[in-house]
């Protein structure tokens, strides 16, 4: 009898442990799905400022860019520079893995092939890489589990599903109430703790809550990039020409 009880208890514990971790993974997936559901949009329009600090400790050395940006689905994006004056009108269209750049100074359009995902967006993105800004949802790229949680947030740990991912691990802090990511920590094999993205100053824009201030700190280069969102609209009609390589600059 005692032996039987022991077996039953052991089996119960085993099942509970196995299923609880499975449940936990399931919870993590659900959380991510909900986050993405709330953030997904068919189209978006935004006015942004990007401040690039090559040396995070030197606030006086900053490159400031003002852009307007249009997004369609997960893959297509268009951005045009308003400032600085020397590159006003320069536009970049990204569709899938391809990019086109329109130079307002010469009137020419150049096609650029797929970039290294780790690279900054034509240098303009500062510490935001193609990987960081590219479409595709988290759930498709990473397997998540809940690393920790408290009354205010979950911290999900993501490991990449594919080998060519730039990051070996990500940690995403998600606000429980809003299902909004507030912080992402990026890790790589080579650099270890590589970057941190802090998202704050959450405001309602275009009918949804948006972090209007995003700060990416690069610990390897000791640099920093800040993106400030001045205005944003979601699911609004956008002229198809902005996503057409032969017309986006007209």
């Amino acid at each position: 009898m005692n032996r039987t009880i022991k077996i039953v208890v052991a089996a119960t514990v085993f099942v509970l442990v196995t299923f609880s971790s499975a449940f936990a993974d399931e919870d993590a997936r659900e959380i991510i799905r909900e986050v993405e559901r709330r953030q997904s949009t068919e189209t978006s329009k935004a006015e942004l400022s990007m401040l690039v600090y090559p040396d995070a400790g030197d606030s006086g050395n900053v490159r400031e860019f003002k852009v307007i940006s249009y997004g369609r689905g997960e893959e297509d994006s268009y951005m045009q520079f308003i400032e600085p004056r020397s590159i006003k009108g320069l536009s970049i269209l990204s569709r899938g893995g391809d990019q086109w750049v329109y130079f307002s100074s010469t009137g020419r359009v150049r096609k650029i092939a797929g970039k290294s995902k780790k690279q900054s967006v034509r240098g303009v993105g500062g510490d935001f890489s193609y990987e960081d800004l590219s479409g595709g949802n988290w759930g498709e790229k990473y397997d998540f589990r809940i690393s920790s949680s408290d009354s205010k947030q979950w911290v999900l740990e993501g490991t990449p599903k594919e080998r060519d991912s730039v990051y070996s691990r990500v940690l995403i802090s998600i606000d429980r109430q809003r299902y909004l990511a507030t912080k992402i920590e990026y890790y790589t094999e080579e650099e270890g703790h590589y970057k941190d993205l802090d998202m704050s100053e959450i405001k309602e824009m275009g009918g949804r809550e948006v972090p209007t201030r995003m700060v990416m700190k690069n610990y390897d280069k000791n640099s920093m990039t800040v993106i400030i969102t001045h205005a944003m609209q979601h699911d609004v009609p956008i002229d198809d020409k902005y996503f057409n390589p032969t017309r986006f600059y007209k």
Binding site: P84, F103, S105, T106, R122, V124
Partner: peptide
């Protein structure tokens, strides 16, 4: 000219 524009970035 375009190299100059890209250097601004």
């Amino acid at each position: 000219i375009e190299i100059g524009d890209l250097s601004v970035a």
